[in-house]
């Protein structure tokens, strides 16, 4: 719900040649969405804090020296934005390819086949094949939890699980360990998930996970559908309480 006392102005800007107006406290992504222009994003999930990490949502802003991440960049008066220029469309495809090449994403045997954000993005961005060499790391699956499984082979390090656990559940069981290409999401002190003393077993991480990296035990190929209705609900309810 918009706060009537909030300090914002209405600004006009141009997205893909179309003049639109937006509130000055909105991000480019929100403004575009309201005008039915879809900008792809992966680390972005409405209800969680944006971190501008996946870079899929980068857009061109006329006069700006660099591409800007639309999930964390606020609109401004007179901005001229191109969300689907040839350059950014190509970059998006390469970013997706990087994810496919980084870990071992084998869609045909994945629990999330057909319900996967990464797969959907690949389709949306016209990714037909991966021209980068596959890096095929060897990563161990953690099935120690009695209800859930963590398969790092399918993790894209979007940190949605980390954020939902910290921001919404308040347990902060997940975090990222290591750095660079060696980075992994882990529970507590890197021990098996089933041994975590902080995990409440709420399953929020499983349902915000864009891929089959976190899933419910007992689900077979293509059976894991994620339910995320709780996220906007919880967010709104908390705002009301405040």
């Amino acid at each position: 719900m918009p706060d009537a006392t909030a300090l914002y102005q209405v600004v006009t800007l141009v997205i893909n040649g179309v003049e639109i107006s937006a509130r000055s406290d909105q991000t480019i992504m929100q403004a575009a969405e309201e005008n039915e222009i879809e900008i792809p994003g992966l680390c972005h999930l409405t209800g969680l804090k944006d971190i501008g990490a996946c870079r899929l949502c980068v857009v061109e802003v006329k006069g700006a020296p660099r591409l800007v991440p639309s999930c964390v960049t606020r609109v401004a008066e007179g901005m001229e934005i191109f969300t689907h220029s040839e350059r950014v469309v190509n970059y998006r495809r390469t970013i997706l390819e990087m994810l496919y090449a980084e870990r071992n994403h084998v869609c045909s045997v994945c629990v999330s086949n057909g319900h996967c954000d990464l797969q959907a993005l690949a389709l949306k961005c016209g990714l037909e094949y991966v021209h980068l060499p596959y890096m095929t790391p060897r990563l161990k699956i953690d099935a120690s939890h009695d209800r859930f499984v963590y398969d790092p082979n399918r993790c894209v390090l979007c940190t949605r699980c980390v954020r939902v656990c910290d921001e919404i559940e308040g347990a902060h069981t997940w975090d990222v360990m290591g750095r660079g290409i060696e980075a992994r999401v882990v529970t507590d002190l890197g021990q098996p998930w089933g041994e975590s003393e902080t995990c409440t077993g709420c399953g929020k991480c499983v349902h915000v996970c864009p891929t089959g990296a976190l899933f419910e035990k007992g689900k077979s190929v293509a059976e894991m559908e994620k339910r995320r209705q709780f996220l906007p609900y919880l967010t709104v309810m908390r705002e009301v309480k405040r």
């Binding site: 899929l56 990087m98 980084e102 894209v156 750095r179 660079g180 290409i181 060696e182």
Partner: peptide
Amino acid sequence: ESCGKCIPCRV
């Protein structure tokens, strides 16, 4: 030395 946060630098 890449921190691993963003995909282009990490991968």
